[in-house]
């Protein structure tokens, strides 16, 4: 028996909106510690890891570990029927082939339940090693989204370079080139507008903008995004999900042939 009640149901809506274009089908893993997901995009180039800790739910009952195979597009369709301020409850029986999403309006005058069929999904679980990063950039998520969107009108790839001067995003295409530099800015008064760069050593890596743009669908979840970089290793683009967890996107850098 599984019953997870999330007062901030809007968070789950935002999580699904940020996943549904990248991943088609995935297993949500429910355990005593939380509600999580790990999945690759269909071309196995990008990986997403989601964690919503059990403490973040108003009520969290998970009698035994359960894996719920869901089509994320269909799950997003159902969650779109919830209002942003609705309380969302996810329910499933151990042997059931369906999951129920219950939506309650904040003043309890409207209660809806949507039942969705579960799927059997063969998914590989990958081990993500703990890594020391050469550079970690924390910046406003909307700024990062704007940069990725703007650069993708000019080129297909972005070179992210971190130096003591700041973080530089560069692209080149048929019509020309573009460079955007964001300098460190602690923004004491408005921490959500800060750009903080922790650098062990300079690093410069090239990534496909198509995937970066897909990751920025998570922008509504958090004011800040963290971009962790190391030479020849996948970048980690992380958005915090309120106080309850995170969504992390991993993308391998392009390699010159």
């Amino acid at each position: 028996m599984l019953e997870l009640r999330l007062v901030q149901g809007g968070l789950l809506k935002k999580v699904l909106e940020s996943l549904k274009d990248l991943v088609n089908d995935a297993n949500f893993d429910c355990s005593a510690s939380g509600f999580s997901l790990q999945a690759m995009d269909s071309s196995h180039v990008a990986l997403v890891a989601l964690l919503l800790r059990s403490e973040g739910f108003e009520h969290y009952r998970c009698d035994r570990n359960l894996s719920l195979g869901m089509n994320l597009n269909n799950m997003a369709k159902m969650l779109k029927c919830a209002a942003n301020d609705d309380i969302v409850t996810i329910k499933a029986d151990d042997a059931s082939d369906s999951v129920t999403f219950m939506f309650e309006s904040p003043n309890q005058d409207k209660i809806a339940d949507f039942e969705m069929k579960l799927m059997d999904i063969d998914s590989e679980h990958l081990g993500i090693p703990e890594a020391e990063f050469q550079a970690i950039v924390r910046m406003p998520s909307a700024e990062f989204a704007r940069i990725c969107k703007d650069l993708s009108t000019i080129g297909d790839t972005v070179v992210i370079s971190v130096t003591k001067e700041g973080v530089k995003f560069s692209t080149r295409g048929d019509i020309g080139t573009a460079n955007i530099v964001c300098r460190q800015n602690p923004s004491i008064d408005k921490p959500e507008e800060a750009t903080i760069i922790e650098m062990e050593e300079p690093v410069s890596l090239t990534f496909a903008l198509r995937y970066m743009n897909s990751f920025t669908k998570a922008t509504p979840l958090a004011n800040q995004v963290t971009i962790s970089l190391s030479a020849d290793l996948p970048v980690v683009v992380e958005y915090r999900v309120a106080e309850m967890g995170y969504i992390r996107f991993y993308l391998a850098p392009k390699i010159e042939e």
Binding site: A46, L126, P234, K254, E257
Partner: peptide, 14 residues
């Protein structure tokens, strides 16, 4: 030209 490696090249199956 540049090549896009798969993520499985970096993270192994558990």
């Amino acid at each position: 030209g540049s090549k896009q490696p798969m993520i499985t090249r970096f993270f192994g199956k558990v």
